[in-house]
Deep mutational scan, measured.
Amino acid sequence: CHSECLGNCSQPDDPTKCVACRNFYLDGRCVETCPPPYYHFQDWRCVNFSFCQDLHHKCKNSRRQGCHQYVIHNNKCIPECPSGYTMNSSNLLCTPCLGPCPKVCHLLEGEKTIDSVTSAQELRGCTVINGSLIINIRGGNNLAAELEANLGLIEEISGYLKIRRSYALVSLSFFRKLRLIRGETLEIGNYSFYALDNQNLRQLWDWSKHNLTITQGKLFFHYNPKLCLSEIHKMEEVSGTKGRQERNDIALKTNGDQASCENELLKFSYIRTSFDKILLRWEPYWPPDFRDLLGFMLFYKEAPYQNVTEFDGQDACGSNSWTVVDIDPPLRSNDPKSQNHPGWLMRGLKPWTQYAIFVKTLVTFSDERRTYGAKSDIIYVQTDATNPSVPLDPISVSNSSSQIILKWKPPSDPNGNITHYLVFWERQAEDSELFELDYCLKGLKLPSRTWSPPFESEDSQKHNQSEYEDSAGECCSCPKTDSQILKELEESSFRKTFEDYLHNVVFVPRKT
């Protein structure tokens, strides 16, 4: 048989008469490798580009789960590009990614509803959504962080984005990388972005840091009482949809009607710091009717980097990364020049730590249904340095008659930039024990000054392991946590139920 035959053949030295091919099969003959313009397919066939392209389009058009959109890589027609490569849609070739590779997620039936953290986790790592997304989240724990972890990498949506009755959302900033909504599939009414009845939605994105392009379709905003109209108009300008909307697409009466839409800028007039305090004062603000001013709200939190936005980490279910302080308005003076500047002394802060701070007014709604208010920009203030805590785990070892090696770990709280350490030492008198000992005694162990690591005695271990207080009263049991108490109650309830079950099964009433 021919060298490319495997198993047997019907005619000697003829690659077209093989029972099976050793390498690849091409047009009725066995070959060692697939010549151009053919590609290896499933490690035994040679196919042309049209064959591989037909497989790709067949799966793409069917949208069946589990099928493969075949691509070409290293002269092979394979189910998908290997790690580190992405497909070129024009020629199906796998090309190296520039940075992290995109991950295209194809949605069944063309859309997916995100109504819980669990459903959001199914899209973790996706960068391109081939379909439409509907966000409908009523509640949950730590929602802002969970949504950002699972949806934060999405850069492109081919269909539309719909935010509907998501009472738990305060902001859409968890879509931190969303840059493009194509609108290839539109919501009824030709809408590519749809926001309806979101009672706590206050911000779409921080438009000073976020760009969003909507290729096709219109915007729809109705019944978002805490979303200011200025935020919607800003989205029109940034996304390129200005002029597409009709009169009733953006409701003037049901958007922002319960919001404090600040239209003035508060400026800080005085800032002073110490290692654990920050004193702030800002310019006074009074609405047209000074009785509408209820006070100020001061927001602050630790910020290692200057990239904080107002609604980071917030949701309507209680999660809030900001510390909020309510401040009463100052006494009002008739003389504008003698107006008191409101302020606040922030206490209990960490030394040498940068804080993000902003302040906003708290006002009631005027009778004319106009909203007044003022808010400052987010500023960054760093507390002063102070003395560091003591170095940890000092170790001293003498390696000769004239040297001592000293080692330690950095302090747990540096409280500033540590530039150097101060080492103090003092000579001590020799131990009298060394002169009084009889060095001729056998088995004498000389006193040693070398360091030995501390260890816990058996008594201390027994005390720590004991669940009861000892007789001397030195140790006591740790208080039980809520989960331990709940577990004990469940076990007790189970024992009672099981005992009742045994009584009912074992003891049967005697027939009379």
Rank of each mutant, 00 (worst) to 15 (best):
V104W: 14
L107G: 05
L107V: 09
L108N: 15
G110N: 04
T113N: 06
I114K: 00
D115M: 03
S116N: 14
S116I: 10
T118H: 13
S119L: 12
S119Q: 05
S119N: 11
S119T: 05
A120R: 02
Q121W: 02
E122K: 02
C126S: 01
I129L: 15
N130T: 11
G131V: 00
L133Y: 01
I135W: 11
G140Q: 14
N141Y: 15
L147K: 00
L147I: 05
A149S: 05
A149Y: 06
A149K: 14
N150W: 12
L153G: 09
I154R: 00
I154E: 00
E155Q: 06
E155P: 00
I157A: 01
I157R: 00
S158G: 03
G159M: 01
I163S: 02
S166P: 01
Y167K: 15
S171K: 08
S173Q: 05
F174C: 12
F175C: 03
R176F: 03
R176D: 03
K177H: 06
L178E: 00
T185H: 15
T185W: 10
L186G: 14
L186K: 09
L186P: 10
I188V: 13
N190Y: 07
F193K: 00
N198A: 03
N200D: 07
L204D: 00
W207D: 06
S208N: 10
K209G: 10
N211Q: 13
N211W: 13
L212V: 13
T213H: 15
I214P: 00
I214M: 13
T215K: 04
T215C: 10
Q216R: 06
F220T: 12
H222I: 02
N224A: 01
K226Y: 09
K226G: 11
K226T: 05
C228V: 06
L229R: 12
S230L: 08
E231K: 03
H233R: 05
K234R: 13
M235F: 04
G240T: 03
K242G: 12
G243V: 00
G243E: 11
Q245V: 07
E246C: 04
R247T: 11
R247N: 04
D249F: 09
A251P: 12
A251D: 03
L252T: 10
T254L: 11
T254W: 05
T254H: 15
N255E: 03
N255R: 04
D257G: 05
D257V: 13
C261D: 03
E262G: 06
K267V: 13
K267T: 10
F268S: 01
F268A: 01
S269K: 07
S269Q: 06
T273E: 05
T273V: 15
K277G: 15
I278T: 02
L279P: 00
R281P: 00
W282E: 00
E283Q: 00
W286N: 09
P288Y: 00
F290Y: 10
D292S: 07
D292P: 06
L293N: 07
L294N: 11
G295H: 12
M297K: 12
L298N: 00
F299G: 05
F299E: 12
Y300K: 01
K301Q: 05
E302K: 09
A303Q: 14
P304G: 04
P304V: 06
P304Q: 03
Y305L: 13
F311G: 07
F311A: 15
F311M: 07
D312A: 04
G313K: 15
Q314V: 05
Q314K: 04
D315L: 05
A316V: 10
A316S: 09
C317R: 00
S319K: 06
T323A: 13
T323K: 10
D326N: 15
I327Y: 04
D328F: 08
L331D: 14
R332L: 04
S333W: 01
K337N: 13
N340V: 14
H341C: 15
W344P: 00
L345G: 05
R347C: 11
R347E: 12
R347D: 13
K350L: 11
P351T: 07
P351C: 07
P351M: 02
Q354Y: 10
Q354N: 09
A356V: 01
I357N: 00
K360V: 11
K360I: 08
T361P: 01
T361K: 02
L362Q: 03
L362S: 06
L362M: 10
L362I: 11
V363L: 09
V363A: 12
T364N: 15
D367F: 05
R370Y: 08
Y372K: 11
G373V: 03
A374V: 05
I378K: 03
I378Y: 03
I379Q: 14
I379S: 07
I379E: 08
V381R: 14
N387T: 09
D393N: 07
I395Q: 05
I395L: 11
S398G: 14
S400Q: 02
S401R: 10
S401V: 12
S402V: 15
S402F: 10
Q403G: 15
Q403I: 03
Q403P: 00
K409S: 12
K409F: 12
P410K: 05
